[in-house]
Simulated assay, not measured.
Amino acid sequence: MDLMRIFRHLLMTRWRVRKAFSVRVLSTIDSAIRESHRSHAGQVRFVVEGALDSSDLFDGLTARERAIDVFSQLRVWDTEDNNGILIYLLLADRDVEIVADRGINARVSGDEWEAVCRMMEAEFRRGKYQPGAIRGIEQVSALLKTHFPTRTPPREDLPSFPVVM
Rank of each mutant, 00 (worst) to 15 (best):
D53P: 05
R45Y: 07
E65Y: 05
G50D: 03
E65S: 13
N82P: 00
R16Y: 09
V76P: 04
V48Y: 01
F58G: 01
V116F: 04
V76D: 07
R66Y: 04
D59H: 07
R75V: 02
A41V: 04
S22L: 04
R18Y: 08
I85A: 02
E35A: 15
R102Q: 12
E49F: 02
F71T: 04
R14H: 12
R94F: 03
N82S: 15
R107P: 00
E112D: 14
L57P: 02
I29G: 05
F71G: 02
H40K: 09
H9I: 03
V70P: 00
W77V: 00
I29E: 02
R34A: 12
D111N: 14
G110W: 10
A51N: 04
W77D: 13
H37M: 12
F7W: 13
A41E: 07
I87Q: 08
L89R: 03
R14A: 11
D81C: 11
V44L: 15
R102S: 14
T13K: 08
V47M: 09
V48P: 03
F58V: 10
D78W: 09
V108T: 03
D93L: 06
R66N: 06
R64A: 14
N83C: 14
Y88W: 05
R34K: 15
V17N: 02
V99Q: 10
S109N: 06
R34S: 12
T79S: 05
F7K: 14
T28Y: 07
S54L: 15
R64D: 12
A67S: 12
E35Y: 08
V108Y: 06
V17T: 10
T79D: 06
K19T: 13
V108C: 05
D30C: 11
I98Y: 02
F7E: 11
R45T: 13
V116P: 01
W15I: 13
F21Q: 01
I68M: 11
F71V: 07
S109V: 06
R38S: 11
I85P: 00
E97D: 08
Y88C: 07
D81N: 14
N83L: 06
L74E: 12
V47F: 10
I68H: 04
E80N: 11
I33S: 07
G50M: 07
K19M: 12
D95C: 13
N82Y: 15
Q43S: 10
D111Y: 11
R64F: 06
E114P: 00
R8I: 04
I104A: 08
D53L: 06
D81F: 15
I68Y: 00
H37F: 03
